[in-house]
Design a protein around this nucleic acid. Structure first.
Lengths: 155, 155
DNA sequence: ATCCATGCAAAAATTTTGCATGAGC
DNA sequence: GCTCATGCAAAATTTTTGCATGGAT
């Protein structure tokens, strides 16, 4: 299953969910902002441009639905609101690095958890379907600034 | 630095934070419930038994403080509230498995991310200080029940 | 006609803030 | 007396819910 507009609409349809214009514009928001991790309110603001009469509750309900269907993935970066991104489940090697200084989120891919998952299932009986890996630290820019600042402090 | 009551109080003291009775009972709540991942409200309820006049705002402020000082770690399991646990930073190999059916959280330890962190820092310049790894899936009990249910469905 | 989805408004739940009070040095 | 921490209440923020309306089959 691909993450294309049509593939997702088909999936909805097959599961007997209506492919309403509201759901379509919300999907589009994610497809056109694949680099972002959007919150409900951000989605609402984006979507209102094309579909001004949409309600925030509809956005919440749609995000819930799409997350339930594994089309979106819920993430929480600790800024007080739930964020969503298109599920990278097929690739599954999709992780985040969060800068504790500026809050920016970088991505990277790696598959090294596959073997660990199998081992864990064997050892614990826990049947793993997905994972989330987040690294916290300081991005190159902020790390450099911190270094500079501590030079100054040292004077 | 250890995660003992005294070690943490010393750390607070050294950083010029007062070791108030409120902060002490909150710390105790975590030390005595090391297996749990407590939310602010849960901490509040635990702590009220020993210190009934404490306010919820104090709990929030204390949790913020302790998280800021890396004594607690903020986690989010997607249940709508921020949770906290004593920071396992020294061991650093502390991860979670979250059951999508019953919501229970199991823990496990593994050190396989160490080498990846070094590699990432080399490749991207992102200076990693911590990470969080969560696995999602179905615990042994729920996985067994799901299996049973699909047997029944198949009849 | 029925059923699902929607918009709006209200409510709920979580977290933050302002401010006067109080404890400790 | 000064400063920091606290309790309380109010406010802000995020999310959920109830309900009447509307659209599609």
């Amino acid at each position: 299953m691909e993450n294309t507009f049509n593939a997702i609409c088909q999936k909805l349809h097959q599961l007997d969910y209506k492919v309403t214009p509201q759901r379509q514009v919300i999907l589009q928001a994610f497809l056109e902002n694949a680099a972002e991790h959007l919150s409900a309110e951000e989605v609402y603001n984006i979507v209102k441009e094309r579909y001004p009469e949409i309600g925030l509750a509809t956005v919440y309900r749609t995000l819930d639905l799409l997350a339930e269907l594994d089309i979106l993935q819920k993430i929480n970066f600790g800024d007080g609101r739930t964020r969503y991104e298109l599920d990278q489940h097929e690739t599954h090697y999709h992780h985040h690095m969060i800068c504790l200084e500026c809050g920016r989120v970088q991505e990277f891919d790696d598959d090294l958890l596959e073997s660990l998952e199998k081992l864990l299932t064997q050892q614990t009986g826990f049947h793993i379907t997905d994972h989330q890996l987040k690294f916290f630290g300081y991005c190159r820019d902020c790390a450099a600034q911190k270094l500079k600042r501590s030079d100054v402090d040292a004077i």
